[in-house]
Computed example of a mutant assay.
Amino acid sequence: MPAILPVTLLSGLPGAGKTTLLRRLRAQSDGRRIGLIVNELRSADIDAATGAATDDVRVCLSPSDMQAAAAYFSQAGFDALIIEPSGLSEPTGMVETFRAGPGEHARFDTLVTVIDAWNFYRDYFSRDTVAQRVAGHGAPVGDDRRAVVDVLLDQVEFADVIVLNKCDLVNDQQRGILLGMLRALNPRADLIEATHGEVASASVLRTGRFNPDATARAAGWMQLMRGTPVPETTAFGIRSFIWQARRPFHPMRFAQLIHEKWRGVLRSKGYFWLASRNGHIGEWEQGGAISRLRSGGHWWCFTREEEWPKDAGHLAHIRSRWDERWGDRRQDLVFIGMGMDEAALRRRFEECLLTDEEMAFGEDAWANLTDPLPAWHEDHDEGGHGDHPGDAPGPGRH
């Protein structure tokens, strides 16, 4: 029976240096055969660009194509398989889409993301959509409204190994800031500094680092939510904190807050409780210059218990967050930043909570509070401008 091939998923924005890294890996293969699946149509010189023979490369645009390619590489005696998706693909989507793709002949082994050290700040604080970025590379303009920073964050936060490439183009301080940011955004990933894609193959091939649960929970914001501290870089003021409260936001004051500048906040995410939408969980997400709020469904206290999860672990989690009066309703937000004024941020959020007098109005009255926020079914993107994490834009247009 053919061996099950370990798969390395190689992600990174266009220009990060994935092709150079591939060429380096093939040059140090020491006789091992490395198959390559490319998940987009590429120029005819891809074989030459990656140093691969024609029989070592397959272009696969669907899960069924991938399954057939993986079967071929396995039966042909290859030792490892690399999947290189489009530079604007998100690894979470790739793993989900192609979960059945490699099939019985291959398994995900390592998720690798290549970061362009020179352009990281530009990409992180950009408000470009994927369609705009694709158009900038001369490709036909599509209607992909995803933000480039969303793709970048998915690639960083859902990775087992992060290769910080082009380190020769930044100085020591810039490199230190980048490494501190990446460690805070994904504490679990192995961080590798590289120039011209020079990475040891053992660091990215057949590492066994991929774990469906651990990789999915690697993001720094998720670690904070689960009560695990994330690495901080005191030399550059990179740190994090979590803010919680047991009373709802006033919609007018909260709407004003999200249009203010949150100096130094690089990443914020979590759940919030809005008085005017008392039964619904609010989801908040911000990365770089892009922020969103949307509905996360209903709080468990507004859901019949027979519809609650049945497994003991999930039920224990709900109970651990339960309040006799308010159920699971709460504010639960995490912040990762550089040079943040934590005391000022906490104070501004606390000012948005209902006062004692407003709380006394009662839940029926809260529904009549003036609420300028967009309807829950609409994604709400607001953005600012900035190009350095020391003056990072916060959520909102300012």
Score class of each variant (00 low, 15 high):
Ser320Trp: 00
Trp221Ile: 02
Val163Glu: 05
Arg175Gly: 10
Asp364Pro: 02
His388Met: 04
Ile238Asn: 07
Trp366Ile: 05
Lys18Cys: 06
Arg292Thr: 14
Phe335Cys: 06
Ser64Pro: 00
Thr234Ser: 15
Asp30Phe: 02
Ala245Asp: 04
Asp356Leu: 03
Pro2Tyr: 00
Gly384Pro: 08
Leu293Glu: 07
Trp366Thr: 03
Ala200His: 13
Asp379Trp: 00
Trp284Met: 05
Arg26His: 11
Gly383Tyr: 10
Arg346His: 08
Met225Thr: 02
Ser240Asp: 10
Lys261Arg: 15
Val161Gln: 03
Arg133Asp: 01
Asp116Trp: 01
Leu274Arg: 05
Val141His: 14
Arg183Gln: 13
Ala219Gly: 12
Glu306Asp: 14
Leu5Trp: 05
Pro140Tyr: 05
Trp118Glu: 04
Pro212Thr: 05
Val170Lys: 07
Leu353Met: 11
Ala344Ser: 11
Val134Glu: 11
Arg146Tyr: 06
Asp364Ser: 14
Ser43Leu: 09
Ser126Met: 09
Asp109Ser: 04
Leu41Tyr: 10
Asp213Met: 12
Arg23Ile: 00
Ser295Val: 06
Met66Pro: 02
Asp154Thr: 11
Asp150Pro: 11
Ile115Cys: 04
His377Arg: 12
Arg145Asp: 15
Ile4Gln: 14
Trp118Met: 12
Arg133Trp: 09
Ala49Leu: 15
Pro229Ser: 08
